[in-house]
Amino acid sequence: MAQRKRNLAKRVGHRSSAGPVGQGIGAPLHSVETVGEPPTVAHDPSSVWGRRRVLLLNSTYEPLTALPMRRAIVMLLCGKADVVHDDPNGPIIHSAMRTVAVPSVIRLRSYVRVPYRARVPMTRAALMHRDRFRCAYCGSKADTVDHVVPRSRGGEHTWENCVACCSTCNHRKADRLLSELGWALRRAPMPPKGQHWRLLSTVKELDPAWVRYLGEGAA
């Protein structure tokens, strides 16, 4: 028992002698402040840490991905990226030694080669962006995805057979073909092309500052 107490005392003494946390660039980020909101603990999963994204560009200004806020800040502090667009209304990060305003767009200092992939993977987010969040049948605001040729009738889950759709048209169409309803598509569904569509397939809402880097499909 005496030996166990001595070992415990050594461990506690080792921890307490480590000094205060949060010195220099490697210091942990303690809190986040947003305009008009109280400070938020950084590890709170429901905080802005889990929602906020920062657009990462290659050194050639190609869009690469939407980074979590924490990762973007670390890249800036480590000198791997530079700020392209500040966000005056964005969150402010506080650590023990410094304060950093979270930007909306950052750019790598060194070029990263991205493997070429001919076909963009289809996701709900990318499909909604392709169809500009409008129903392919009536043009109203879309809130779901429809298979032009229903899957129950042999339709495939592909760019060419999927369209953004409103709930009303989706329910009216059900598992019928367009020829049976006398309907027509507003435009032929096609797979999008371009590196920026890989990013659009992962995000639902776009920061307005991103649009100039994402091409025509983001408009």
Rank of each mutant, 00 (worst) to 15 (best):
R4A: 12
R6P: 03
R6A: 15
A9G: 02
K10E: 13
H14G: 02
S16Q: 09
A18M: 13
P20M: 09
P20K: 13
Q23R: 15
G26T: 06
A27C: 06
P28Y: 08
H30M: 08
V35Q: 13
V35E: 14
P38Y: 04
V41Q: 15
S46G: 08
V48Y: 11
V48S: 12
V48C: 11
W49E: 01
G50N: 15
G50Q: 15
R51T: 07
R51H: 09
R51G: 04
R52I: 11
R53T: 10
L56E: 03
L57M: 06
L57G: 03
T60A: 15
E62S: 10
P63L: 05
A66C: 09
L67W: 10
R70I: 12
R71M: 07
R71F: 00
A72L: 03
I73Y: 00
L76S: 05
C78M: 15
C78Q: 14
G79N: 07
G79K: 09
K80H: 15
V83L: 05
D86Q: 12
P88S: 13
P88H: 13
P88L: 12
N89L: 14
H94M: 02
A96H: 10
A96D: 13
R98T: 14
S104A: 11
S104R: 00
V105H: 02
R107C: 11
R107W: 00
L108V: 03
S110E: 10
V112K: 14
V114I: 15
V114F: 03
Y116E: 08
Y116Q: 09
R117P: 01
V120T: 12
P121I: 02
M122G: 01
M122H: 01
A125K: 12
L127T: 03
M128W: 11
R130A: 00
R132C: 09
F133K: 05
F133R: 01
R134Y: 03
R134D: 03
C135F: 01
C135K: 01
C138Y: 03
G139D: 11
S140A: 07
K141Y: 02
K141G: 02
D143S: 10
H147S: 08
V148H: 01
P150C: 05
R151E: 13
G154C: 04
E156Q: 14
E156A: 15
E160F: 08
N161G: 06
N161L: 07
C162K: 06
C162A: 11
A164D: 01
C165R: 02
T168M: 06
C169G: 03
H171D: 10
R172W: 14
A174F: 09
A174L: 03
R176A: 15
R176E: 12
L177Y: 11
L178S: 11
L178C: 08
L178K: 00
S179I: 04
E180M: 15
W183I: 04
L185T: 01
L185Q: 05
R186T: 07
R187F: 14
P191V: 07
P192T: 06
K193N: 09
T202I: 10
K204Q: 14
E205R: 13
D207E: 12
P208Q: 13
P208I: 10
A209G: 04
A209S: 14
V211M: 06
R212H: 07
Y213A: 06
G217H: 00
A218M: 04
A218P: 07
